[in-house]
């Protein structure tokens, strides 16, 4: 059955959230979720890069790698495409959108090594998505990740203001606990849409 791209989009945000149900991209999720502003900046950058790299990778995979029978090299190509697309984006943004650069441009280099970006490209191959499915899946995954980091950052910010976290749990420890509880909460969405 052909899945409706819109359904994939919603599933990628809620039921199959890449951060909270696949636990991908934990490093920036822990490190960049100290302040809500920073988290939103990082989230937007992830949405942006994830969508663009998935599209480029989809085109390359279907129009170059499959016809030439070199699917086996897809990992290598995907990683290099991600790295160079990020670089290219950074240059373009810096040149033409200096405003944008100061709000999220600095997160771009960090994203190069973010495993969620590669994961989205690999999932799209694994699940044999067509072009529009890929577009909505990747942007949905980005939105899902941004949502997760923003919620975590907001909770952490509030936690710092009002509660006394036990010393041994401060920093990454309590963030993991928050992420765990959030991930349980997101399980409540399961059954809403299913894309597996």
């Amino acid at each position: 059955m052909e899945l409706n791209p819109l359904m994939i989009f919603i599933a990628a945000i809620l039921t199959h959230n890449i951060a909270l149900s696949y636990l991908l991209g934990m490093c920036p999720l822990l490190a960049m979720s100290r302040q809500t502003n920073t988290a939103i900046g990082m989230g937007i950058a992830v949405i942006f890069v994830m969508t663009i790299t998935a599209i480029v990778n989809w085109l390359l995979y279907h129009f170059v790698l499959i016809p030439s029978g070199s699917e086996i090299m897809s990992y290598l190509v995907f990683i290099i495409v991600i790295a160079s697309v990020v670089q290219l984006l950074e240059m373009i943004i810096e040149k033409f959108f200096p405003r944008l650069q100061s709000s999220f441009g600095i997160f771009l280099p960090l994203i190069t090594v973010n495993c969620t970006i590669l994961a989205v490209s690999l999932f799209m191959v694994l699940r044999t998505y067509n072009f529009w499915q890929t577009v909505l899946f990747s942007s949905g995954s980005g939105v899902g990740w941004a949502l997760a980091i923003t919620i975590i950052a907001a909770i952490r910010e509030k936690l710092r203001m009002v509660s006394d976290v036990p010393q041994g749990l401060r920093g990454a420890g309590i963030t993991m606990v928050i992420a765990g509880i959030l991930s349980l909460a997101f399980m409540g969405f399961s059954g809403m849409v299913d894309i597996q």
Binding site: S68, S70, L76, I80, S84, I92
Partner: peptide, 20 residues
Amino acid sequence: LTFIVINSILLAIALLLVIA
């Protein structure tokens, strides 16, 4: 063919970046 394809992809990307 794989070899040629991968190399040309890499070369194209590198060129693109240098030009950019």
